[in-house]
C-alpha cells in the first residue's frame, strides 16, 4: 500500500529510534527528536516501538492513502483531519482508501509524530530508516518529503484498534518556562563563577535558529571567561577549544553569548567550549519547543540525572501498559 504526499508541510522527515554506532565518523544518531511521542504513536497503531514514522515540524503534511490504514498522531498538539474531519491526537483512528489525512494549525508543541500501522517502509541504511538530511542519508531519498513523493507502508504485524488512546497524564510536554535539567561539566571551568550562576538564574528564549541539529537560546547574560593564554591549535577566541567531540545534549556557547544545545542530528565535534549537557531524560522536551518559548536551565548532579532517567523509564512502562 502507498501514501501519496500531496503537500509535504514545512519539514516532514521519516524517523525511527536512530542510527547508533557511526558518530565517530560524523554520522549522528538522528531519529525522532521526541522519542517518547514516537514510541507512543507506534504503540497506538500496533507497531514495534521503534518503527519508522513521519516527524512533522510546526505544520502537518497532506497525505492521500491508497488503502485503509490505522493512524495515530502524538507529540505536538497538531490536530489531524480525515477528509476535513478533525480527529483526536494521541488516539488511533482509521483512514480509508482514497481519503486524505490533513492537519489543522499547531496548538502547542513543535513536532508531531504520525505513525501508520505497518510503519513507513523506506530502505534501512546503516541500521536505521531515519533521515539525516545534512548527509543526504536514510529516510526517503535522504531528504525531507516533497509533493508527489510516494511512501510505502510495511506489512501489518499486529492488529490495532481504532479509538485506542493514551491517557492525558502520560502525554509528556514541556512546561512554560520549559525546564531543561543540565549536568555542568566539559569546559565549565572556562567561565567565571558569576557567569555560571547567571547561566542557571537567567530565563532564556528559544531562538528562531532551532532545528534537528541544535536548538539556540537567546536573552541571557553573556558568559564571562576565565582569562587564559589560548592553547595551541584552539583559535584566538576565548570560547575556542582544540576541536573536540560534542556529546548529544551538550551546550556550546560560541563567543559566550547564545547557548546551542545539540540534538539528534548533532554535529559530532568542533571548536567551541561547552558548559555542560542536558540530561537524556529531557532531550525529548527540547523537540517540542517553539521559537520564543521561555526556558530555564536547571542544575542537577549525576544522581539527579539518573533519577530523572529512571522516572522517564517508569513513565514509558506505564505507556506500554496503557496500550495493552
Amino acid at each position: 500500500m502507498a501514501i501519496k504526499v500531496i503537500n509535504p508541510g514545512l519539514s516532514t522527515t521519516v524517523q525511527d529510534l536512530g542510527r547508533p554506532g557511526y558518530y565517530h565518523l560524523g554520522i549522528p544518531l538522528s531519529g525522532g527528536m521526541d522519542r517518547f511521542a514516537l514510541r507512543a504513536a507506534n504503540l497506538l497503531v500496533g507497531n514495534d516501538e521503534g518503527a519508522a514514522v513521519l516527524e512533522a515540524v510546526f505544520m502537518g503534511p497532506e497525505l492521500q492513502f491508497a488503502s485503509d490504514a490505522i493512524v495515530a498522531v502524538t507529540g505536538a498538539e497538531l490536530p489531524p483531519k480525515v477528509d476535513g474531519n478533525v480527529q483526536p491526537t494521541w488516539t488511533a483512528f482509521k483512514v480509508k482508501a482514497g481519503q486524505t489525512l490533513g492537519f489543522d494549525f499547531l496548538k502547542s508543541g513543535a513536532r508531531a509524530y504520525i505513525a501508520v500501522q505497518g510503519g513507513i517502509d523506506v530502505p534501512v541504511v546503516l541500521g536505521s530508516r531515519s533521515t539525516y538530511t545534512l548527509g543526504a542519508l536514510g529516510g526517503h531519498e535522504g531528504r525531507k518529503l516533497a509533493a508527489g513523493d510516494a511512501l510505502k507502508v510495511g506489512g501489518v504485524a499486529k492488529a490495532a484498534k481504532e479509538g485506542r488512546s493514551i491517557p492525558a497524564n502520560l502525554r509528556r510536554l514541556p512546561g512554560n518556562p520549559a525546564e531543561l535539567r543540565v549536568v555542568p561539566g566539559l569546559y565549565w571551568h572556562r567561565i567565571t563563577d558569576a557567569a555560571g550562576t547567571g547561566f542557571f538564574a537567567d530565563t532564556w528564549k528559544v531562538a528562531p535558529e532551532a532545528d534537528r541539529i541544535g536548538y539556540r537560546f537567546k536573552g541571557g547574560k553573556p558568559l564571562e571567561f576565565v582569562p587564559r593564554k589560548q592553547p595551541f591549535g584552539a583559535g584566538s577566541d576565548p570560547s575556542n577549544i582544540v576541536d573536540a567531540c560534542y556529546p548529544y545534549g551538550s551546550i556550546q556557547v560560541p563567543g559566550g553569548t547564545e547557548p546551542i544545545v545539540l540534538h539528534r542530528d548533532a554535529v559530532s565535534g568542533g571548536g567551541y567550549f561547552m558548559v555542560g549537557t542536558v540530561i537524556s531524560a529531557d532531550m525529548d522536551l527540547i523537540g517540542q519547543l517553539q521559537p520564543h518559548t521561555p526556558a530555564k536551565f536547571v542544575k542537577v548532579d549525576m544522581k539527579g540525572a539518573l533519577q530523572a532517567r529512571h522516572d522517564r523509564q517508569a513513565l514509558l512502562q506505564k505507556l506500554r501498559a496503557a496500550v495493552n
Binding site: 543540565v182 566539559l186 584552539a234 545534549g249 537524556s280 532517567r309
Partner: peptide, 18 residues
C-alpha cells in the same frame, strides 16, 4: 575526565594540540 550528561564521558588528553 568529565561527564557529558548521563550518557557520555569526555576525556581531554591535553588542552593543546600535538
Amino acid at each position: 575526565y568529565s561527564f557529558g550528561g548521563d550518557e557520555h564521558i569526555f576525556v581531554e588528553v591535553d588542552e593543546e594540540m600535538s
